[in-house]
């Protein structure tokens, strides 16, 4: 049922979801996602905020200070930028590079040995390894959110070019959002796998 709904909204276009009222169509998509059990992101262009949502409830809000649309081109050939990128659901989003998660294993003492069990005190969340300065939330259908930290002024021209050439999963469109360092770190650490994305508002 949920899967069918997602397939439906995933393929929805303006005409299918809201006729000639694109703003209402976007809200309709957000409402459809609120009725599922999936985690999803709402990119609110009007308020310059990215929300992590479940069931219509905003779990975390990540304000951004700068946003840009980056269209890829390879060997002077521009890709096919989706025209309706603000009017559809983007599916199966995940962090790239994926956060490293090593599961520690508890070794219980042998039964009846009387030995004390092993006690492992994990670090505080903020003490973990820092996330990369830039990371992507990569969606299955060709959209990428590139998350940058405020103050990160490193040049990316050559790295972007080479990365684009080497990547078999070339994006159709990349949105660049600049977040505060704390918000970027929190987003990297807490984003559940397989999120969906809808956009509210349209570019000028």
């Amino acid at each position: 049922m949920v899967l069918a709904l997602l397939v439906l909204v995933g393929g929805a276009s303006w005409a299918a979801s809201g006729g000639d009222d694109p703003d209402a169509a976007q809200v309709k998509l957000a409402l459809a996602l609120a009725r599922t059990d999936s985690f999803y992101l709402v990119l609110d262009l009007r308020r310059a905020e990215l929300h992590l949502m479940l069931g219509g409830v905003p779990l975390r809000t990540f304000p951004y200070t700068v946003a840009a649309v980056a269209s890829p081109r390879v060997a002077f050939t521009a890709g096919r930028t989706p025209r309706d990128w603000t009017g559809r659901v983007w599916r199966d989003g995940g962090i790239a590079p994926a956060p490293r998660r090593e599961r520690a294993e508890i070794t219980p003492p042998p039964v009846g040995s009387g030995a004390a069990p092993e006690i492992v005190v994990p670090p505080l969340p903020g003490d973990g390894p820092p996330p990369p300065a830039r990371f992507l939330v990569r969606f299955a259908d060709g959209l990428e959110l590139e998350i940058r930290r405020e103050g990160d002024a490193g040049a990316t021209g050559l790295r972007d070019r080479l990365g684009l050439l080497a990547d078999p999963r070339r994006p159709h469109l990349r949105l660049r959002l600049t977040l505060s360092a704390d918000h970027a770190t929190d987003l990297y650490r807490c984003l559940p796998p397989g999120v969906l994305l809808v956009v509210l508002g349209r570019p000028a």
């Binding site: 980056a70 269209s71 684009l164």
Partner: peptide, 14 residues
Amino acid sequence: VAGSGYREAPLVPA
């Protein structure tokens, strides 16, 4: 390589 990369434009809401 020179002809590859991203063409970036500010994302300004309507």
